[in-house]
């Protein structure tokens, strides 16, 4: 099939970017979206142009490194699907596809569709862990965790850190990402002990990175490839308020 692409090209975060138009003639329905971009890049390189830079790695939807806005939607039209798992059969012959990077001031553009998401790492660094050194762990079965608890914790822990929640949010809030980690650890006895200090440092770090506030539009949950629940955000708020109110 024939596809027209309008791809955001931008040299670095200081330069101005713009859409550039490209045409591809022999796009197969079985190609993944990124393979379609690979094909375009080979064409560009052979023409003597610079290829489109985009982020990707595992190409099976788990590493979280890929992620672009496709026709104005994070990771494209399919629900619960990362960019790498999106295939061209989701498009029609003759379609025009707009491709833009995730945009937020906490995600400076590196080049073209590549953005720097280390702000998300910084949030984890500020407290998204259990403080246990190697060797300190007690016998694994010494603290039972019920099936339901473990499943609920897993649902939050499944976050792949792609940043689609930030990109989909009208306020560029990282509340879903941050709360998923807080909620994952707060639901396990191993992690809950530090919840009240953890939530305060992670929320503060989220502020410092320049993310916006959450207004509960719930767009993040809809566009999240892992379907992380917005109730995690409520839990983060609860833990935060509790921690603040109980402060000695």
């Amino acid at each position: 099939m024939k596809i027209t692409l309008k791809i955001w090209r931008q040299r670095d975060c200081q330069s101005k970017g713009e859409f550039k138009e490209y045409h591809l003639d022999k796009v197969s329905k079985d190609m993944s979206f990124l393979e379609m971009l690979d094909t375009l890049n080979i064409k560009l390189i052979k023409q003597g142009d610079l290829p489109v830079e985009f982020d990707h790695d595992c190409r099976e939807g788990i590493c979280g490194q890929c992620g672009v806005m496709i026709n104005g939607i994070a990771h494209g039209p399919l629900k619960n699907t990362t960019t790498c798992q999106l295939h061209m059969r989701s498009f029609n012959d003759g379609d025009t596809i707009y491709v833009e990077p995730f945009k937020a001031s906490a995600f400076p553009i590196v080049r073209d569709l590549k953005v720097n998401r280390s702000a998300l790492d910084h949030i984890i660094t500020s407290g998204g862990y259990v403080s246990v050194d190697t060797g300190q762990a007690p016998e694994a079965n010494s603290i039972p965790v019920t099936f339901e608890q473990a499943e609920a914790a897993f649902d939050a822990a499944a976050c792949i850190g792609c940043g689609a929640c930030v990109a989909s949010c009208k306020n560029s809030s990282a509340a879903l990402f941050t709360s998923a980690k807080i909620s994952h650890l707060a639901q396990l006895p191993q992690g809950d002990k530090e919840t009240s200090t953890r939530v305060v440092s992670m929320v503060n770090q989220m502020e410092e990175e320049g993310f916006g506030h959450c207004t509960n539009t719930e767009a993040c949950e809809v566009e999240c490839p892992e379907g992380i629940s917005v109730l995690n955000i409520a839990r983060m708020n609860y833990e935060y308020n509790r921690s603040r109110l109980m402060k000695k």
Binding site: Y129, V130, V132, T134, G135, Q136, A137, P138, E139, A140, I143, P144, V145, T146, F147, Q149, A150, E151, A153, F154, A157, H184, L185, L188, Q190, G191
Partner: peptide, 13 residues
């Protein structure tokens, strides 16, 4: 396994 559980890895239960 002990170490991972202590870190909060949600193994099947």
């Amino acid at each position: 396994i002990d170490q991972a559980v202590a870190q909060g890895v949600p193994f099947g239960r």
